[in-house]
Write a protein that binds this DNA or RNA. Sequence first.
DNA 1: AATGTGCCCAACCGCGGAACC
DNA 2: CGGTTCCGCGGTTGGGCACAT
Length: 262
Amino acid sequence: MERTCFGVRKGAWTEEEDILLRKCIEKYGEGKWHQVPPRAGLNRCRKSCRLRWLNYLRPNIKRGGFTSDEADLIIKLHKLLGNRWSLIAGRLPERTANDVKNYWNSQQLQKKKKKAEAKAGKGCRGGDLESKIIKPRPRRFSKVTNCLRGINTNCNNNNIIVAAAEDHNNIQSAGGGQISLPTPTPTPWPQLDGLIIKYWWDDKDMLISAKEFIDNEMITIGTTSLWSTTDLMIDQPRAGPPNSDQQGHINDFSIDMDIWGS
DNA sequence: AATGTGCCCAACCGCGGAACC
DNA sequence: CGGTTCCGCGGTTGGGCACAT
């Protein structure tokens, strides 16, 4: 299974390699992955080293099967975040994105099989249009984002919010600020290549489940939150136009989702 | 015991974005 | 400001193990 490409080893890691990598990370810390192979004396590319550390060698990685609680959380988070495995894994202590992804894929495979079997049993109806949910994609913030720099902002945990509710006009930040969501698209949903396009904010079930999820499990305003400020945040009204109004309502928000569907 | 099948999971690959020059 | 490098992510692949035949 061992392979080499231009002198760089590929394939399964040996115990000796693990030891070298672990020692290197312990000595120099995580990051600067391009420096890791020479420092550790490993004949591996930086990507391979990084992956090995993140998915296997890193301390406090929980191995073995997922509990039902974890599985539930994954399902809920996936409904909200889509295939953002790193974000999902961030909410599951001691689990890696790769683990979550593998778990999800295997579950989906099993579901598909069961569905196919059920369909084969009942007989295929055929001709149904497949629904395609367009889910938001998280957006990363650069270091120049005001909220991260602390310039003209009051960003703190009290301002954390999730923009999801049944009523588009009834969304408020924890600080009382008003938030505007995209105007609901008119029904019937548009079609593209025979697929019905559903926007996530049009999907009442999704919004309700998102709201329940937020109400019941996800958000703790003020103290510890499963959401971090870098994942989800509201920029407080900035000094002056164009994004603030007289009442201090929030009408410009940064959120870790590109809800406008890029 | 040998072979086939399915599943799990570690690892690779390609891409996009941020950082740097 | 454009090009290059680096990092991190999601999708995919394939080896290996367990179980069935």
